[in-house]
Design a protein around this nucleic acid. Structure first.
Lengths: 102, 102, 102, 102
DNA sequence: ACACAAAGTTCGCGTC
DNA sequence: GACGCGAACTTTGTGT
C-alpha cells in the first residue's frame, strides 16, 4: 500500500470534488452509452441486423490502426521465420531480430 | 437483379447514417473516458490513491442494500472458511453470525 | 428467527473442498505461467525480441479461427453496403440483411 | 561455426522450438482454465454463488495485512465522504477513526 | 511513470 | 424465460 498515512490528509472537500467530477463524467459517459443502444434499437427497427452492425463498427474501428498493424506483424512473423527477403519492413525486421552487425 | 428491393437504393444510405451516428457517439464517449483519466491523474497529483478512488466510485454506484448484502455473503463464506478472525470486518461478521455474546 | 440463517446451508466442508480444488488448479496454472515467462526469458537470452515473439504466438493463435472470421466479416461489411454480388457468403448476408422475400 | 551470425542457420529452428514450447505450455494453461470453469460450475450446482466464490478466492490470494490495509483506506475515503453510517463495516471504521466511544 | 499484457467482470446473444 | 457461452470493456499487475 503506497503512502497511506493520511487520515487527516484525506481532505474531505477535495476528495468530494474529485468524486463528483468523476461521477459526473461517468454519468455523461453512460448516457452516451444509452444513446448508442437507442441508435442500435432504431436500426433494428429499420430492419438491420444489430449484430452485423456491431461488427461493422468494430471492423471500421480496427481498420485504420490495425490493418497496418496486421500487415506489420505478418512481415515480422515471416521475417522471424527467415522467410522474408527484399521488403523494407522485412529487412528492417530481420536486422532488428538477428542483428545488423553480423 | 430483380426489381423492387430496397437493398440497393435505400439501405446503404440508411446504414451509413446509422454507422455515422454510432461512431460519433462512441467518439464522444471515448473523449469522456479521456477526461475521466485526466481527473484521476489530477487526483493522484493531489496525493490520492487512484486505485482506492476507483473502488470507492464503484462502491457508490451500487445501491447500499445490495452492497451490504454482498458484503455479508462474502463474510459468510469467509466465516465458513474460518478466515474471519482478528479483523474488524471479521469480528463484526462473526458477531452477527454467532451472536454478540461470543 | 427460524431456520432462515444460511449459515448451515453454506456447508463449510463442501465450500472448503471447492476452494481447495480451485486454488490448486490456479496454482498449477500460475506455475505454467511462470514457465512461459521463463521460456520467453530464455528466448531473450538467445537474442530474440520477446515482444515480437509474443505477437507471433498471438498471430498463430488467431490464425485458424479468426482468419476465416475476419473474411466473413469483411463480406458482411461489403454486403451491408450493397457492394457485394455473386459470392455465396455475400448473397447469404444480403438475404439475411435485406430480406429474401423482396 | 565460428562466426557470430546465427541468424540464417540456427535462429529459425531455435525460434520454432521456442514457439512450440510456449504454445504447448499455453495449451496446458488453457486446459487448467477449463478445469477451473468446471469446478465453478459444479459449485454452482451445489448452490454456491460463483461470483462471491470468485471474490473469496481473490481475497485469499492477497496477504491478510495488505487486505486489511486496503479495506481501511477504503473506509477512510468513505468516511471522508460521509458514507459510513449504519453498516457494520462502516461502524467499525468510524470507531477506529473517531474513537470507540462515539 | 508508461505502456503493454493478463485477469476479472459485465453485457448481449443464442440455446434449450 | 432462464441459463450458459462468448465477446467487449474495465481494471490490475508487470516490465521497460
Amino acid at each position: 500500500m503506497a503512502g497511506a498515512e493520511m487520515s487527516d490528509a484525506v481532505a474531505p472537500d477535495l476528495l468530494r470534488s474529485f468524486v463528483d467530477r468523476i461521477e459526473r463524467l461517468n454519468a455523461e459517459r453512460d448516457e452516451l452509452g444509452e444513446d448508442v443502444k437507442a441508435v442500435y434499437a432504431e436500426a433494428r427497427g429499420q430492419g438491420f441486423d444489430v449484430k452485423i452492425l456491431r461488427k461493422v463498427i468494430a471492423l471500421r474501428k480496427k481498420d485504420p490502426a490495425q490493418r497496418i498493424e496486421e500487415a506489420e506483424i505478418i512481415d515480422l512473423y515471416l521475417a522471424a521465420l527467415g522467410m522474408l527477403a527484399g521488403t523494407p519492413l522485412g529487412d528492417a525486421a530481420v536486422e532488428r531480430q538477428f542483428g545488423a552487425h553480423a
